[in-house]
Amino acid sequence: MKHLLSATAMVLATATLAAAEGQLQLYNWGNYTSPELLAKFQAETGIKVTVTDYDSNDVALAKVEAGGSGFDLVVPSASYVPIWVEKGLVQELDLSRLPNHKNIAPEWLDVDWDPGRTHSIPWQWGSTGIAVNTKVYGGDINTSAVFLEVPPELVGKINVVPEMVDILSLATMYVGGEPCSTDAEVMKKTRDVLLAAKPNWISMDYGATERLSNGDWAASVNWNGSTMRVRLNTNGDVQYGYPREGYPIFMDSVMLLQDAKNVDEAYKFMDFIMLPENAAMISAFARYANGIAGSEEFMPEDMKTAPEVVVPEEHKAAGVFLPTCTGKGLEYMTAIWTELQK
């Protein structure tokens, strides 16, 4: 009992030592930050990085907005970046303190959600496509029809990740609309195609890496990095399809919080991860590409040629950045999603 109390007191005491010398609080997606990268950063700069996990953009946003969260850096997805800026939760970056900013690959520099990259720097990017076990289904996998008009071989064996915006966008593009459409006709078609397809899905769940690998599922709407792991687990049986009707590209980017206490350390870290060899460490850990020019040569062999990571030329055009969806577009999505999950 006494031990317990003193232990508690100790933890309480150390936890209040915020903003001490050489610290950095990084708020990032779980299992997304390479420990080797942090060790290397600490060895070079003496700054200790503490990582705290989140598992959804909405939780991260709500937490920081509530105030006093104690984080310095956060890593939101592209469609959330403008929200963070608009709400005044992040600082504009002083680019003169980021000499490696020039390493950002040209196609990732002038992005719609942050032109000129004045508020965010690349962490990792990937796509939402379709993973299919080609032993079970030998047909065309580069189409959303795989989950929207499920082929007989895959009925009752296909999963759909429970990501509202990704799934609604895939379906809207499949019926010929734009993501976050406010066109009632388009959204009606979207709803109908989804409701008709749902009985053929086995589940709407995460965990595709496991369940595709062990054969519980024969296909799933899934992320590229996860599918690459599955392909390696299954000796190439499971392949990744890029829907030609349009598929979402996501990018998670590092942003500096308005109430950051360790601003100098944060700049050092951001500059550090824009060095190609360091960016490659991030990719080697989480298995996604990173958006820093020249990092490819430092990547693990199996990633350099992976069709999930290096998007084949013919599929590049179909990739779409999802817009920040508000207003009527969001209402449509939530209504359809509720209908779909009830």
């Binding site: 997606w29 299992n31 598992d55 890496t209 989480a286």
Partner: peptide, 12 residues
Amino acid sequence: PTYMLGQLRRAF
């Protein structure tokens, strides 16, 4: 638990 939740989306 929150550490594990962070891993849920990717893979345990």
